[in-house]
């Protein structure tokens, strides 16, 4: 496929930014900065989606992912103020904690193996595959996706999963409601939020994430 140099350069630069920003997410100690880095990595991802003729997906990436989900993360991080030096070796607690994840050496071994073996394997396999040009008119545009989703709902294979996801979201709502219940089984009223000092969040003792950032 002949591709214009502009596309090539945009792809290469976006890929570079995504990789660097994602590495920053897992390496930076300050949680607020890590979240901002993840948002930074979403912007060039959306650019790549637009290069892949997935314009609606690119818009969703910004609107829903960077806008809504990351907003949730930022909010919670700001709310509970985890200490910015979480990378330090933890004091106390059993080492076997979260063993499935924290197999330590084994986990890194698996990652190293996958990195050195699977990626080149798949790279070569993908290079040998035949490439087809996009044939559908208006590929990836909103009207086209809407037709795919909502045409002939009784015989559309996508209907069931689309309806089921609404139940998934309901479960999320019920879970969040349940987790906010107080002892009596009541949900939190507006009046009762600050009346019980023992259950209020101990924000005062800790430094806020912004202060910590400034101190660095």
């Amino acid at each position: 496929m002949p591709v214009s140099p502009l596309v090539e350069i945009t792809f290469a630069l976006s890929a570079l930014v995504i990789l660097l920003a994602s590495l920053a997410v897992v390496l930076i100690k300050n949680p607020v900065r890590a979240t901002l880095m993840l948002i930074l990595s979403f912007l060039p991802t959306s650019l790549i989606y637009i290069l892949l003729q997935a314009s609606f997906v690119g818009i969703l990436q910004i609107l829903v992912y960077a806008g809504a989900i990351m907003m949730l993360f930022t909010f919670v991080i700001m709310m509970i103020n985890p200490s910015p030096n979480e990378g330090d070796a933890p004091a106390g607690g059993s080492e076997s904690a979260f063993t499935g994840l924290r197999g330590g050496l084994v986990g890194f071994l698996i990652i190293g193996l996958a990195g050195t073996m699977v990626i080149p394997m798949i790279y070569h396999a993908a290079a040998s595959l035949p490439v087809q040009a996009v044939t559908k008119p208006h590929f990836g545009e909103l009207s086209s996706i809407a037709a795919l989703l909502f045409e002939d709902p009784a015989n559309n294979p996508l209907t069931v999963s689309f309806e089921l996801i609404s139940f998934l979201i309901l479960v999320g709502i019920i879970a969040a409601l349940n987790f906010s219940r107080r002892k009596g089984g009541q949900t939190v009223d507006e009046d009762s939020i600050s009346t019980r000092p023992t259950e209020a969040l101990p924000i005062v003792k800790r430094q806020s994430g912004i202060e910590a950032m400034e101190r660095k």
Partner: peptide, 28 residues
């Protein structure tokens, strides 16, 4: 979807499902 199966936007729909699930997982 773009490079191999450009006749229908199936995986764009899978993308939407995936971010829906990601939102619920993040919320919970």
């Amino acid at each position: 979807n773009y490079f191999r199966w450009g006749t229908s936007e199936t995986s764009h729909y899978l993308y939407m499902l995936s971010i829906g699930v990601a939102a619920v997982e993040a919320a919970v």
